[in-house]
Design a protein around this nucleic acid. Sequence first.
DNA 1: CGAAGGAAGCTAATGCCATTAGCTTTTAGC
DNA 2: GCTAAAAGCTAATGGCATTAGCTTCCTTCG
Lengths: 194, 194
Amino acid sequence: MPRAGLDPAAVVAAAADLADEVGLPNVTMALLATRLGVRAPSLYKHVSSQAEINRRIAVLALTEVGDELRDALQGRSGRDALTAAAQTIRAYVVKHPGRYAATMRLDARSPEDPVAVAGARVLGSLRAVLAGYPVDPDGTVHAMRMLRSVFHGFALIEAGGGFEMDTDVDESFTWLIDFLHRGLSRPEAPGSGG
Amino acid sequence: MPRAGLDPAAVVAAAADLADEVGLPNVTMALLATRLGVRAPSLYKHVSSQAEINRRIAVLALTEVGDELRDALQGRSGRDALTAAAQTIRAYVVKHPGRYAATMRLDARSPEDPVAVAGARVLGSLRAVLAGYPVDPDGTVHAMRMLRSVFHGFALIEAGGGFEMDTDVDESFTWLIDFLHRGLSRPEAPGSGG
DNA sequence: CGAAGGAAGCTAATGCCATTAGCTTTTAGC
DNA sequence: GCTAAAAGCTAATGGCATTAGCTTCCTTCG
């Protein structure tokens, strides 16, 4: 019986693909092993547990999104950058729902944790988007959290089919980007506007 | 051996409490049965499956949030209403993380589905908040989706401990509400602002 | 008051899951 | 070619949701 020639990265990559296809909760060790032409216990020669697989799928996802964001933001600023970032994230989640699901419910314990490293790169891109807007330094963290929240939430609801189908989701997404752009474009005046 | 005197509502209520205490994924039939002073198979006399329990926890959560939103919005409009709604949702998620978790990954098939009914009440409250702002009718759906996304996303990240602790989350939340208020307060001018 | 029947509990069993133990085979390095 | 680690395997364990089938309680009706 020939060897399958696996290694941790191959196992995680297959698990990530499987998660996108059948949903993260349905990625069992047995199913993953079948996909790799191997029996389930053999996977433990490469990864320590299912939890580690989930964790490494999350790192993979954050790294991939980070790369795509970096590329998409090249040479863009202001509204172009905001639009590119938003569309990049949304497209990734739609294309890779399983990978995306793995990024939820994570706790990065130390700054050198791969999850934290990959996550920081994504946050760096959000920060770069904000650099094109007159957001004061004190507000940057808040603005980043807002962007994270709104992109995360939108993706989650869309991926879960939570929007009723009466109104086009693309339209809502465009409206959302426009809303964010307008809000970020005018200097903050705390308490203003009403 | 005396009867436990259970019924579907009691089982679901106990499951919801348990979910808030130990986390939704840790609510097993055996643990829930122990809590109710019963053996696991006995639960099937009242609910058909764990999936049904999760579904009914979600309905419970949406109903409770809907009630709290209705109360919180009484006599308020504009910024007050927006603030009240946002704080109500956030407080509920912090207090009932397990119930909240159950509302994710739901699919309401028909309009008379209890999930859809309870969800519609929550959306109605968001619509009421928007009524105090000059959002044109075409934009209302988009604005509701935005509010849903941003509250959902913020709650999810906060509940998952995803915000680094350097900057106060309360401050970010206040900033967020202010941002939304300012954006909603000025009539939309598509494409403006950049 | 007492019997009947359904409701609500129980134990036992099934099948899936992740994971561990311990054995065998391949393959890389000498 | 030999050796030893790496990578595969089968078998077993314990937890899980769920089903089958039995027993006991309690209500209702005669």
